[in-house]
Nucleic acid binder design. Structure first.
Lengths: 118, 118
DNA sequence: CGGTATCCCACAGGATACTG
DNA sequence: CAGTATCCTGTGGGATACCG
């Protein structure tokens, strides 16, 4: 091994399953982006929608529900008048920080590469 | 900050775009899994299909084409008889190693967490 | 504002059959 | 074996309208 092509750990099968598990929970078009958006701090529904470019209300609503079910997001209702609803990341969402970091890093480098090629 | 909830870097917008770029290229249900499968070493078409559980020939074919277009995979035709076709990761696929590592690590931990909860 | 309900379509992707 | 062609379904997700 010299060029970094060999990506796998000794047993590839375990890695395959582990990656499968990850994608099952945080895969898809929006989940990670919503989480990143909330990484800035608590947000209200429409704020999130404005931050995550292109997401519709319907989809955001269902994504937030799934994220809540999976323990990444907490929904906080401030019972003032008018009622204010905030979403915030849970501690568990913090376990994704390394994933997000590497993914963002790679995306940046990849974009640069594409730029250079054109 | 004490609990790791704060996932974002100073500017979240950049991270949002970077993650978006990543997902655009390596997002989806199969791409990363095909790459991991090839991480074991070169493979033939049907070998890959057997390794990546659940993928159909049609889908694998199109995924391989996209991965080739994006510079992750090289298609090698050995012109013997019978003709043998191999797929191998390029050096560029190696740039994903950190992403794959963190993703696999997280997936493993997450599965453990789910197990404990049930 | 913070959503939910409905409708609808595009497309990912499964099944099967077929070819060199 | 290594795919391609065809067909078909499920569903992700957009648009719009509506409600408390």
């Amino acid at each position: 091994m010299e060029s970094g092509v060999q990506v796998s750990t000794p047993e590839c099968a375990g890695m395959l399953n582990a990656i499968g598990d990850s994608l099952y929970v945080i895969g898809g078009k929006w989940k990670l982006r919503v989480i990143v958006a909330l990484g800035e701090g608590n947000k209200r529904f429409n704020e999130i929608q404005r931050t995550v470019d292109g997401i519709s209300a319907r989809v955001l609503s269902s994504e937030l529900k799934e994220l809540e079910m999976n323990g990444f997001v907490k929904r906080i209702v401030h019972t003032q008048t008018p009622v204010v609803v905030e979403y915030q990341l849970t501690d568990y969402a913090g376990t994704l920080s390394e994933v997000l970091r590497t993914l963002a890093e790679w995306g940046t480098k990849h974009r640069d590469k594409i730029r250079r090629e054109r």
